[in-house]
């Protein structure tokens, strides 16, 4: 029996997606967060602890229209204030992709950079990030530097010249700690409907099938 945990890229993606949806993150954002985690894994960064931190503090009911940042004109700088990555992370990247320089205090900079990195792999574009709006670096450079904390940080993002997309290298991915993986599964399990005789029949098959 193998004892070491081996989590494939497919398992990472589906488990993160389910965990986010189970926590009532909007599905489209959950899809982006799942891709962000794969982008981080491809750079040998384990996204699980920052993600669990965000899931633990996510409250969907606190979302309201008044908290939504304004969308400025292309070329302007947007000072977005304090934002949760599970609510606005993909929109911040959208904004940067549209040519707006974004400045925000984000609850997980590493996940935001993961979102940016994933976007580079799906679109022909380049993004840069900065902590102070002055010293800019590439997204993968920032992620790989190991200097990005899992907690809140100030982040600047801007688009740079177009760049051809390259596929993610999904071999030899970092493996999670077993207890973290179990925690993620507990979030993911919230999408499941408990089994009973009534919904067992919803599968439309008999309980035995010999011939």
């Amino acid at each position: 029996m193998t004892s070491a945990l081996h989590i494939s890229a497919n398992q990472w993606r589906t488990s993160v997606l389910k965990a986010c949806v189970g926590t009532l993150v909007a599905r489209g954002i959950a899809e982006d967060i799942a891709d962000a985690c794969l982008a981080l894994l491809a750079l040998q960064q384990n996204p699980l602890q920052p993600l669990l931190g965000c899931l633990n503090t996510f409250h969907p009911s606190s979302s309201d229209v008044d908290g939504v940042p304004d969308w400025p004109d292309v070329g302007a700088t947007a000072h977005l204030g304090s934002l949760q990555v599970l609510k606005f992370g993909p929109s911040i990247i959208d904004m940067a992709q549209a040519g707006i320089v974004c400045n925000c205090d984000i609850d997980s900079m590493i996940l935001l950079l993961g979102l940016a990195q994933a976007r580079l792999h799906s679109h022909d574009m380049q993004l840069e990030c900065s902590r102070d709006g002055t010293n800019w670096q590439t997204i993968d450079g920032a992620i790989s530097s190991g200097n990005v904390h899992s907690g809140p940080e100030t982040c600047w993002l801007r688009a740079q010249k177009a760049q051809s997309r390259t596929p993610l290298n999904m071999t030899n991915l970092p493996q999670p700690r077993r207890e973290d993986w179990v925690s993620l599964q507990q979030f993911a399990d919230q999408i499941m409907v408990p089994a009973d005789d009534s919904n067992r029949a919803d599968a439309g098959a008999g309980l035995t099938d010999n011939d």
Binding site: R27, G28, I29
Partner: peptide, 18 residues
Amino acid sequence: TLLGEVLMRHPEHRDIAR
């Protein structure tokens, strides 16, 4: 209006927009 702006206000449509 850009789709990105719509989705910032309506994140629930992000999956169907994609």
